[in-house]
Design a protein around this nucleic acid. Sequence first.
DNA 1: CGGGTTATTGAAGCCTTTCAATGCACGTGG
DNA 2: CCACGTGCATTGAAAGGCTTCAATAACCCG
Lengths: 233, 233
Amino acid sequence: MAAHEQTRCENCIIRELNSLRALKKEELKAISDSKEMRVIKKGEPLFKEGEKLGGVYCVRNGVSKLSKISDNGKDQIVKIASKGEVMGQRSVIAEQTTNLSAVALNDMEVCFIPKHNITAGIQDNPEFTQAVLKYMAQELKVADDVIVNMSQKTVNQRLAETLLYIENNFGLDAEGYLALILSRSDIADVVGTATELCIRTLAKFKKEELIETKGKRIKLIDKKGLNQLKNGF
Amino acid sequence: MAAHEQTRCENCIIRELNSLRALKKEELKAISDSKEMRVIKKGEPLFKEGEKLGGVYCVRNGVSKLSKISDNGKDQIVKIASKGEVMGQRSVIAEQTTNLSAVALNDMEVCFIPKHNITAGIQDNPEFTQAVLKYMAQELKVADDVIVNMSQKTVNQRLAETLLYIENNFGLDAEGYLALILSRSDIADVVGTATELCIRTLAKFKKEELIETKGKRIKLIDKKGLNQLKNGF
DNA sequence: CGGGTTATTGAAGCCTTTCAATGCACGTGG
DNA sequence: CCACGTGCATTGAAAGGCTTCAATAACCCG
């Protein structure tokens, strides 16, 4: 069980990134004993909108989109979750079905933590609860910002913002391209527009020398310019 | 102090509507002693985006809009808060400045509860914390829904949705008109569009006999039709 | 190499914003 | 009581933004 030993929660660095860091040693042990590591291939779902989750997913590696289908039938990406994020927390806490679907954007490694571990933590460990509370408060603020951006900004502005967001949160590869590679259609689903317009706008950015592209990969050239665009000119 | 006696939190029915109902008698007494009742006139702000709040506001009467100015300078209403809602909770919990502004949409009565009462409750009373947690989880879900709606739905759909929302949450007056009366420009700020388009769309709804109007007041005639509109036809 | 998916481009038309002008209602002071 | 001003409601028209359909090109996988 050497391989499994390496993944004991007590030794896991990932948890430092999220509210699980507020847990005590014995709580972590309990989680370690009941958790389950899963490998999800690119494109596969972790869960779907409307499912009842038996626990939460802690991302060890890879990136997942969290999206929701609108009444009009189009997918809207609400959030992108990566290393260290806990997915499904909201549903477990509210004791509701998920309101979002999670699909892997590249190959992922996640730990599934049964919900009783989480609810037990919330009942017995005030520090953990406090950490979760603060995390949710932050999420709520971010969500408000997204609402305002989606309502008031143009596709131009939102695309510029999305590109900068990706660079800030996922960094660059060796050649200076955005490390997180999304399909044009996924970018469009983040921006909340038709794929064609997304492509056209990227082409425009390229012509204005704000970005460069190489296949699906994108490199930000003029970050100042993108920032100006993001706010209104 | 007879008048003040009536407003002791222990006897307040309003608190049954929110997470404060999970508080114990002595906690409520402590709050009663330090809380402060405020009257806010229509159009006056309770607080502004970026302020540091010394506590939360519990709405006893009246309605407030919670909005945020986008980088483009336009106001977007993110939420409408009424009787029983606690405003400013998020900022107090996250120990951050507010991300939203609150302005009274009609005359209001609110109780200001200093934040130490809230943080004390969170530290000492797990049931209260749990209640707050669930409340925030619910808010987060609603916010996700709003994101998807704002991103994917047309003004038509969003306006229909907003009208139905107002009827469901604020009810009707004696004549069957929406009990919550908003200016056209406030409606536009909820829907996230220009006032003119909001007005024009209302006019269209009227022509299609989905609604009737009388001055600023609006009556929903064909709720089924509005519902169909809200989802895509 | 073939088939299927993804990217790109054009063009038409609808949706939304914006500017400009007018009407309406309410409250104030003369 | 009336004239007036202010702010909100309403309407028209033009310009720009966005979606959609359709067709073509590039790419990736086996």
